[in-house]
Each structure stands twice: as structure tokens, then as C-alpha cells.
Amino acid sequence: MTAVMREGEAVANTAAAEESIFRRNLHSFAENRLALGSAIVVLLFVLMAIFAPLIAPHDPAETDLFRRLQPPAWMPGGEWSYLLGCDALGRDILSRIIYGARISIFIGAAVVMVATTIGIMAGLAAGYFRGWVDVLISRVVDILLGFPYLIFAIGLMAMMGPGLINIILALVYKEWVIPCRVVRGETLVTRELEYVEAARALGASGKHIMLREILPNILSPVIVVSTIRMAHVIILEASLSFLGLGVQPPTASWGAMVADGRAFILQAWWVSTFPGVAILLLVLAINVASQGLRDAFDPRFHE
């Protein structure tokens, strides 16, 4: 009985310690100015996407034949109300970039969230039950890892046809493998720890042990990995759109905007250039912020 009490206290103490470690990690992340700055940039992009209709100076789909390939404001022939110029149909590039953020961020977030949820469930099951469950899941993972990512996504998009939901599905089908591997590895180690043993001895169910005992303790590396993956997914979506397999026109998406400008690189460099800058800024900010997160939250990087 006392042993159990102590066990309970120990668990409570670890929980308190976890809490303070979390705070300390958050603090050390906040002290990393570059990472914090990048996180703010990401946040600004998110706000831009949410409030696109309020921020965008023009309707992103509105064409104006008199403004075809109009240069940016600071060049001869530019207008300040069309800051970054216009594309071949006379649509305002800035407004299209602001609306395009919706597609990139929505797809990036949706893919990573769905994939991480699936990956956590599959990884926990494989690592906790081991045996045939693990063999089955690991086989599927191995097979999916046998495809280069972009080729897999292109093949699926060719099959399913373009469209928002299809892009998300095409990317999720492969993306879940990455969190799954992380979770499986962590679970294999964690399930052998004493506190899990104790919970099992106390008669806790498998579901309880996986979700309440193991999951909270392996969540940090999973979150770090998913933030890094978000940058990859955004580039993948842009690549699919660039190839014409993404969201269909007239919906603005950054990859497709770059592709549209390809035909005009001789006379209108701005059509391709600015949407690319938007992709680069967002992806770079996510990468720097997630590296900061990793340094702060993953104990293996604490020196």
C-alpha cells in the first residue's frame, strides 16, 4: 500500500517537474531571439491568411485587361494601389499572394495535423503491442518509404484529380509515416520504463497506458518533428501547384502563381518572383522557429 502511495507521489512529482521543464523550455525558446522573431513572422502569415479579405487591396480573381503585366509600383508604369504589379490577366499580385497564404497554410496545417494524429495512433500501437501489429505497421511504413515523396504525391494526384481535399489526402497518405516512426521508436523505449511498468502493475488498461502514460512523455519530439514537417509540406504543395496538379484556378496558390509567370520571364519578372518570395519567407521562418523549438524542447540538444 505504501509502495503504491509512493508511486503515486512520484508520479505527481514528475508531473510537477515536467511542468517546470516545459516552462523552462518555453523560456529558453523565448530567449532565442532569431527563433522568436521567426515564430512571429509565421504568426503574421497566419493572421494574413485569416484576415485576407480585410487586408487584400483588390479581389484576387478580378481581371483587368488594361493592367496586364503591369509592373510593381516603384517601376515606370506602376501604380501604388497595385504595389507588386499585376499578372498576365491583370490581377493584383499582392492580393493573390495574401489569398494564396490561405491555401499554403491551410494545407500545411491540415496535412501535418491529420498525419501526426494517424502517426501517433499507429506508432503507439506498433511500439506498445509489438508482435504482429508492429510487423504489419512497420511493413506498410517500409513500403511507403520506398517512394520518393513528390513522385508518390504526383502519382496520387494524377489518380484522384486536382482539388483541395485531394492534395491533403495525397500528402497525408505518405506524411503519417514520419511521426509514426518517431512515436514507435520512443514508445519502444518508454514502455520499458518503471513508471509504465508500475501503471501496468496497478491494472491500467492498454489504452490508458498508451494515451495517459506514454503519449504525454513522448509528445515533445513529435511536436518538434511536425513543425519541421510543416515547412516540407508547404514546399510540396507549392511544387504540386507549380506542376498544375494543385488547387485549380482561379483560386490563388503560390506555386501556381510562379508557374503562371514562367511564360513571362522575358518581360515581367515580378509575376514569378513575388509569390516565390512569399514561399521562401514562410518556409524559412518555419524552419528557423522549429529549429529553435527543437533546441529548447528536445533534451538531446541540451548541452
Binding site: 515547412a231 514546399i235 507549392a238 511544387s239 507549380f242 506555386g255 510562379v258 508557374a259 509567370g261 514562367r262 520571364i265 522575358l266 519578372w269 514569378s272 518572383t273 509569390p275 516565390g276 514561399i279 521562401l280 518556409v283 524559412l284 524552419n287 528557423v288
Partner: peptide, 21 residues
């Protein structure tokens, strides 16, 4: 960091604009 964040299709177009055009 830039190298892993640059979308390849866009970087290629930038190179084309600079060196070819």
C-alpha cells in the same frame, strides 16, 4: 538554411532570369 527553404522550381526560374534572360 536558405538551401533547404528555397522552393526548387522558383530558384530555377530566378537562375534563368539572371543568367539566361
Amino acid at each position: 538554411l536558405l538551401g533547404v527553404s528555397l522552393p526548387g522550381f522558383w530558384f530555377g526560374i530566378l537562375l534563368l532570369m539572371l543568367f539566361a534572360v
